[in-house]
Design a protein around this nucleic acid. Sequence first.
DNA 1: GTTTGCGGGCGCA
DNA 2: TGCGCCCGCAAAC
Length: 399
Amino acid sequence: MLKGADDVVMEHEDSASRHGEMTSWDINDIQLPQDVRQIDGFQEWPDSYVKHIYSSEDKNAQRHHSSWAMRNTNNHNSRILKKSCLGVVVCGNDCSTLDGRKIYLRPAICDKARQKQQRKCCPNCNGPLRLLSCRGHGGYPVTNFWRHEGQFIFFQSKGAHDHPRPETKLEAEARRSIQKAQTAFSPSCPRLKQIQELESLTGAAPTREALPLLLSKPDIYSLPDNFRGHISKRSQEPVLGSCSRWLPCSRAGEDRGSGEVLAWSRSPALRSNPSPGRPGSGPAAPCTAPSHQQCTHSSTPHTLPMEKDGHGPFRHSTGPLGDGSCEDKSPLAYSGSSLPPLPYPAPQGGPCPMASGAQHHQQLSVPRRGSEGHDGEVGRHVGLNYCNDDMFFNLYPLR
DNA sequence: GTTTGCGGGCGCA
DNA sequence: TGCGCCCGCAAAC
């Protein structure tokens, strides 16, 4: 089941070879192929040593978009845009939400913004945040190269991400918007109370269309093969308690500072096995977040569910014509009929003591495709109730 | 405020 | 020389 990075490369190469020109070029070549017969669909999560040729009309390609947190890197070559992966921001306490999901935030691209981000706390347990650096390219971050040539945009990725996928840019933006909204709308907001009261009386839930676009796509609950390999290796590591190691939010590591997780292997945050000693551990292995708030900030984390076998539902991103086509779906695509997962309990508690991220996620998340959904047996189709809505409004104030 | 692209500059192999 | 990375700047959102 697990495939190594080499297999991934071979798979991509095989896929690419079917398109002829795909493997015959390198981003540094003086002359890139002009007889491109196959334009790739945009790959939102390119991984491993892949190459793609996009149309110059492709908006995502034009913007050099990637759902990985990629920052611009100066390669002193104005013709080739180089970007390196920033990794993923994880909870330093390796906490899990009530439904066993992990916190995987998108690192801010800007250095200052990223440092500021790391000074914040885990939205789930208020523990410190850690930047899990990407070391998937010979110990260095995975690099992406973009080169515009005529009517095509050539893309090449070097390295295989050795960390989970962060939330997407849209999700991160939405989370920031919600943070602002939460600042604007206090929990005692009369309008909010009015809505809640009305809802409790009528049993009506807010329309999903009116909800912020925060959906974490099923696809992003996946991980590169090499990462799964890491998980397999890490499975023998001692299992540490997650939230028992809760620390006051004093200072998460700076980008290059002490708090940065320098290597995937050093991070306890992303181990495969949920702590067996974790209170209430079970299929969903919830963690009891500290009741006292150390930070005032609040956000909507991107989380990954943990499967019963202890492995996250990480999925290999297949080749250009594989399920990458599904990955092209913007989070917007889910806004109509699905809701974003609400992976952690309401920051301020709320009237429903049983409110849990698990409930919310199971009720609100998009059902995964059969090939990747291994946790579907946990009451997924329960409808919204007042409790959940109440928490929802705490998390997603009206804007 | 943040992202993005660009480019100067430095250190290392 | 190539690469990684830091830093600052400007434009755009």
